[in-house]
Computed example of a mutant assay.
Amino acid sequence: MTEAAKPAYWALIPAAGVGRRMNSDRPKQFLTLGRRTVLAHTLSIFLQHPRIRGVVLVVGSGIDPDALDLPEAGGRLFQVTGGAERADSVHNGLAFLAERAHADDWVLVHDAARPCLPAEDLDRLLQTLTGDPVGGLLVAPSTDTLKLSDAAGRVERTLDRSRVWRALTPQMFRLGVLRDALAAAAAAGVAVTDEASAMERVGWHPRLVEGSPVNIKITRPEDLEIAHLYLSRQDRLGDRP
Protein backbone atom coordinates (compact mmCIF):
# COMPACT_ATOMS: atom_id res chain seq x y z
CA MET A 1 0.00 0.00 0.00
CA THR A 2 1.40 3.41 -0.94
CA GLU A 3 1.77 6.16 1.64
CA ALA A 4 -1.06 8.12 0.01
CA ALA A 5 -3.37 5.08 0.11
CA LYS A 6 -2.82 4.32 3.80
CA PRO A 7 -5.72 5.18 6.14
CA ALA A 8 -5.36 8.57 7.78
CA TYR A 9 -5.72 9.32 11.49
CA TRP A 10 -8.17 11.94 12.71
CA ALA A 11 -8.90 13.12 16.24
CA LEU A 12 -12.42 14.02 17.33
CA ILE A 13 -12.84 15.99 20.55
CA PRO A 14 -16.43 16.29 21.89
CA ALA A 15 -16.44 19.47 24.00
CA ALA A 16 -20.12 20.44 24.14
CA GLY A 17 -20.72 19.22 27.71
CA VAL A 18 -21.64 21.59 30.53
CA GLY A 19 -19.87 19.80 33.42
CA ARG A 20 -22.50 20.28 36.13
CA ARG A 21 -20.45 18.46 38.80
CA MET A 22 -17.69 21.09 38.65
CA ASN A 23 -19.88 23.75 40.35
CA SER A 24 -18.24 26.32 38.10
CA ASP A 25 -19.45 29.35 36.14
CA ARG A 26 -18.26 27.73 32.92
CA PRO A 27 -17.90 24.25 31.43
CA LYS A 28 -14.89 22.36 32.79
CA GLN A 29 -13.11 22.30 29.41
CA PHE A 30 -12.86 26.11 29.55
CA LEU A 31 -11.30 26.27 33.01
CA THR A 32 -7.63 27.24 33.24
CA LEU A 33 -4.66 25.00 33.92
CA GLY A 34 -1.50 27.07 34.02
CA ARG A 35 -1.55 29.47 31.07
CA ARG A 36 -4.03 27.54 28.94
CA THR A 37 -7.54 26.19 29.18
CA VAL A 38 -8.15 22.49 29.76
CA LEU A 39 -9.39 22.28 26.18
CA ALA A 40 -6.27 23.92 24.75
CA HIS A 41 -4.05 21.42 26.56
CA THR A 42 -6.13 18.56 25.18
CA LEU A 43 -6.12 19.84 21.62
CA SER A 44 -2.37 20.40 21.68
CA ILE A 45 -1.72 16.71 22.32
CA PHE A 46 -3.16 15.83 18.92
CA LEU A 47 -2.16 18.91 16.96
CA GLN A 48 1.48 18.29 17.89
CA HIS A 49 1.41 14.65 16.83
CA PRO A 50 2.84 14.13 13.32
CA ARG A 51 0.50 11.25 12.42
CA ILE A 52 -2.76 13.10 13.15
CA ARG A 53 -4.04 14.59 9.90
CA GLY A 54 -6.66 16.82 11.50
CA VAL A 55 -8.66 17.48 14.66
CA VAL A 56 -12.43 17.97 14.76
CA LEU A 57 -13.55 19.99 17.77
CA VAL A 58 -17.25 19.67 18.62
CA VAL A 59 -18.57 22.52 20.79
CA GLY A 60 -21.96 23.65 22.02
CA SER A 61 -23.98 26.25 20.14
CA GLY A 62 -23.58 29.81 21.37
CA ILE A 63 -20.06 29.29 22.73
CA ASP A 64 -18.01 32.49 22.93
CA PRO A 65 -15.09 31.99 20.50
CA ASP A 66 -12.78 33.84 22.92
CA ALA A 67 -13.42 31.15 25.54
CA LEU A 68 -12.00 28.44 23.29
CA ASP A 69 -8.34 29.56 23.55
CA LEU A 70 -7.49 27.50 20.48
CA PRO A 71 -3.87 26.54 19.79
CA GLU A 72 -2.20 27.32 16.49
CA ALA A 73 -3.28 24.55 14.16
CA GLY A 74 -2.02 25.33 10.66
CA GLY A 75 -5.41 24.61 9.12
CA ARG A 76 -5.70 21.20 10.82
CA LEU A 77 -8.39 22.16 13.36
CA PHE A 78 -12.07 22.11 12.38
CA GLN A 79 -14.98 23.29 14.52
CA VAL A 80 -18.41 21.63 14.50
CA THR A 81 -21.57 22.28 16.54
CA GLY A 82 -22.46 19.55 19.01
CA GLY A 83 -25.68 17.91 20.14
CA ALA A 84 -27.62 17.32 23.34
CA GLU A 85 -25.60 14.28 24.45
CA ARG A 86 -22.04 13.11 23.94
CA ALA A 87 -23.12 10.52 21.36
CA ASP A 88 -24.93 13.25 19.42
CA SER A 89 -21.81 15.41 19.39
CA VAL A 90 -19.64 12.52 18.23
CA HIS A 91 -22.21 11.75 15.52
CA ASN A 92 -22.04 15.36 14.29
CA GLY A 93 -18.26 15.22 14.22
CA LEU A 94 -18.27 11.96 12.28
CA ALA A 95 -20.78 13.37 9.79
CA PHE A 96 -18.41 16.29 9.20
CA LEU A 97 -15.49 13.91 8.71
CA ALA A 98 -17.47 11.67 6.35
CA GLU A 99 -17.45 14.51 3.81
CA ARG A 100 -13.66 14.86 4.00
CA ALA A 101 -12.22 11.48 4.96
CA HIS A 102 -12.45 7.86 3.83
CA ALA A 103 -14.67 5.32 5.55
CA ASP A 104 -11.63 3.24 6.51
CA ASP A 105 -9.74 6.18 8.04
CA TRP A 106 -9.13 5.92 11.77
CA VAL A 107 -10.92 8.26 14.18
CA LEU A 108 -9.60 8.78 17.71
CA VAL A 109 -12.38 10.10 19.96
CA HIS A 110 -10.97 11.76 23.06
CA ASP A 111 -12.64 13.51 25.98
CA ALA A 112 -12.03 17.27 26.05
CA ALA A 113 -11.59 17.02 29.83
CA ARG A 114 -8.63 14.60 29.59
CA PRO A 115 -5.69 17.01 29.12
CA CYS A 116 -3.03 14.76 30.65
CA LEU A 117 -2.87 12.01 28.01
CA PRO A 118 0.82 11.04 27.79
CA ALA A 119 2.34 11.20 24.31
CA GLU A 120 3.72 7.68 24.72
CA ASP A 121 0.19 6.35 25.34
CA LEU A 122 -1.02 7.93 22.13
CA ASP A 123 1.94 6.42 20.27
CA ARG A 124 1.22 2.99 21.76
CA LEU A 125 -2.46 3.16 20.79
CA LEU A 126 -1.62 4.05 17.18
CA GLN A 127 1.06 1.38 16.90
CA THR A 128 -1.07 -1.36 18.48
CA LEU A 129 -4.29 -0.73 16.57
CA THR A 130 -3.08 0.30 13.11
CA GLY A 131 -3.45 -3.23 11.73
CA ASP A 132 -6.30 -4.30 14.00
CA PRO A 133 -9.52 -5.42 12.27
CA VAL A 134 -11.73 -3.76 14.90
CA GLY A 135 -9.94 -0.98 16.77
CA GLY A 136 -9.92 -0.40 20.49
CA LEU A 137 -9.35 1.92 23.39
CA LEU A 138 -6.95 2.93 26.12
CA VAL A 139 -7.76 1.37 29.48
CA ALA A 140 -6.37 1.28 33.01
CA PRO A 141 -6.50 -1.75 35.29
CA SER A 142 -8.74 -1.66 38.33
CA THR A 143 -6.77 -1.45 41.57
CA ASP A 144 -9.80 -1.75 43.86
CA THR A 145 -11.88 -4.76 44.82
CA LEU A 146 -15.13 -4.38 42.91
CA LYS A 147 -18.58 -5.42 44.14
CA LEU A 148 -21.63 -6.06 41.96
CA SER A 149 -24.83 -4.98 43.73
CA ASP A 150 -28.31 -6.47 43.56
CA ALA A 151 -31.57 -4.51 43.30
CA ALA A 152 -31.74 -4.15 47.09
CA GLY A 153 -28.32 -2.52 47.33
CA ARG A 154 -26.56 -5.58 48.73
CA VAL A 155 -23.51 -7.35 47.37
CA GLU A 156 -24.44 -9.93 44.78
CA ARG A 157 -20.87 -10.99 44.10
CA THR A 158 -17.29 -9.81 43.93
CA LEU A 159 -15.87 -9.28 40.46
CA ASP A 160 -12.52 -10.66 39.34
CA ARG A 161 -10.58 -7.41 39.14
CA SER A 162 -7.91 -9.01 36.97
CA ARG A 163 -10.49 -8.89 34.18
CA VAL A 164 -11.94 -5.45 34.95
CA TRP A 165 -10.58 -2.34 33.25
CA ARG A 166 -11.45 1.36 33.43
CA ALA A 167 -12.26 2.74 30.00
CA LEU A 168 -10.17 5.77 29.03
CA THR A 169 -9.84 7.72 25.81
CA PRO A 170 -8.82 7.96 23.01
CA GLN A 171 -11.05 5.26 21.60
CA MET A 172 -9.95 4.45 18.06
CA PHE A 173 -12.18 2.97 15.35
CA ARG A 174 -12.72 3.18 11.60
CA LEU A 175 -14.86 6.13 10.57
CA GLY A 176 -17.51 4.21 8.63
CA VAL A 177 -17.96 1.37 11.10
CA LEU A 178 -18.11 3.68 14.12
CA ARG A 179 -20.63 5.96 12.44
CA ASP A 180 -22.86 2.97 11.63
CA ALA A 181 -22.60 1.63 15.20
CA LEU A 182 -23.59 4.96 16.76
CA ALA A 183 -26.46 5.35 14.29
CA ALA A 184 -27.73 1.86 15.17
CA ALA A 185 -27.71 2.68 18.89
CA ALA A 186 -29.54 5.94 18.29
CA ALA A 187 -32.17 4.24 16.12
CA ALA A 188 -32.78 1.68 18.88
CA GLY A 189 -33.06 4.38 21.53
CA VAL A 190 -30.02 3.04 23.37
CA ALA A 191 -27.88 5.58 25.21
CA VAL A 192 -24.17 4.78 24.94
CA THR A 193 -21.61 6.52 27.10
CA ASP A 194 -18.58 5.73 24.97
CA GLU A 195 -17.74 4.64 21.45
CA ALA A 196 -16.63 1.15 22.48
CA SER A 197 -20.11 0.49 23.90
CA ALA A 198 -21.66 1.28 20.53
CA MET A 199 -19.23 -1.06 18.81
CA GLU A 200 -19.84 -3.84 21.35
CA ARG A 201 -23.58 -3.52 20.86
CA VAL A 202 -23.33 -4.48 17.18
CA GLY A 203 -21.05 -7.43 17.82
CA TRP A 204 -17.51 -6.06 17.69
CA HIS A 205 -14.90 -6.79 20.38
CA PRO A 206 -12.62 -3.76 20.77
CA ARG A 207 -9.03 -4.37 21.78
CA LEU A 208 -7.84 -3.16 25.19
CA VAL A 209 -4.59 -1.17 25.19
CA GLU A 210 -3.22 -0.45 28.64
CA GLY A 211 -2.56 3.21 29.28
CA SER A 212 -1.35 5.38 32.14
CA PRO A 213 -3.61 6.23 35.10
CA VAL A 214 -2.49 9.86 34.82
CA ASN A 215 -4.89 10.15 31.89
CA ILE A 216 -7.61 11.38 34.24
CA LYS A 217 -10.93 12.94 33.30
CA ILE A 218 -11.55 16.25 35.04
CA THR A 219 -14.99 15.88 36.61
CA ARG A 220 -14.85 17.52 40.03
CA PRO A 221 -13.04 20.63 41.36
CA GLU A 222 -10.31 18.58 43.08
CA ASP A 223 -9.42 16.98 39.74
CA LEU A 224 -8.00 20.32 38.55
CA GLU A 225 -5.28 20.16 41.20
CA ILE A 226 -4.36 16.62 40.20
CA ALA A 227 -4.29 17.54 36.49
CA HIS A 228 -2.11 20.56 37.30
CA LEU A 229 0.39 18.26 39.01
CA TYR A 230 0.48 15.80 36.10
CA LEU A 231 0.87 18.54 33.48
CA SER A 232 3.66 20.08 35.54
CA ARG A 233 5.49 16.75 35.59
CA GLN A 234 5.08 16.57 31.80
CA ASP A 235 6.48 20.12 31.53
CA ARG A 236 3.37 21.22 29.63
CA LEU A 237 1.85 23.97 31.79
CA GLY A 238 3.66 26.82 30.05
CA ASP A 239 3.49 25.52 26.50
CA ARG A 240 1.83 27.69 23.88
CA PRO A 241 1.93 25.66 20.64
Rank of each mutant, 00 (worst) to 15 (best):
L39I: 10
H110L: 11
G203F: 04
W165V: 08
L70Q: 04
T32N: 03
D223M: 11
L126E: 07
L146G: 02
T81I: 13
R76A: 12
A140P: 01
D66V: 13
D239R: 13
H110V: 13
I13D: 06
V202N: 02
D111I: 02
A113Q: 06
A119F: 10
G82Y: 11
S142A: 15
L175Q: 04
A184L: 12
R51N: 05
H228C: 03
Q127P: 00
H49V: 14
R124I: 04
S149C: 12
V90A: 01
E120R: 13
T128R: 10
G203E: 04
A5L: 14
E156T: 03
D123T: 06
V109H: 04
D180K: 14
L231C: 07
D223K: 05
L70M: 02
V18D: 10
N215V: 05
F96A: 02
K147F: 15
L33P: 08
A84D: 07
A184T: 12
L178E: 10
I218N: 07
S89N: 07
I13V: 15
R201I: 02
E200N: 08
T219K: 05
P71W: 10
G238H: 09
K217C: 05
A112N: 06
L33T: 05
I216C: 01
L168N: 08
K217M: 09
D121R: 06
P221R: 01
P65D: 12
A140V: 15
L126T: 01
L125P: 07
H49E: 08
R233H: 12
R124S: 14
G153Y: 13
A16F: 10
A103Y: 02
F30M: 13
P14I: 11
L208E: 01
I63P: 00
L182M: 06
V214L: 03
L175E: 05
I218A: 06
A196M: 11
A227Y: 13
P133G: 11
T130S: 09
I218G: 03
V192C: 04
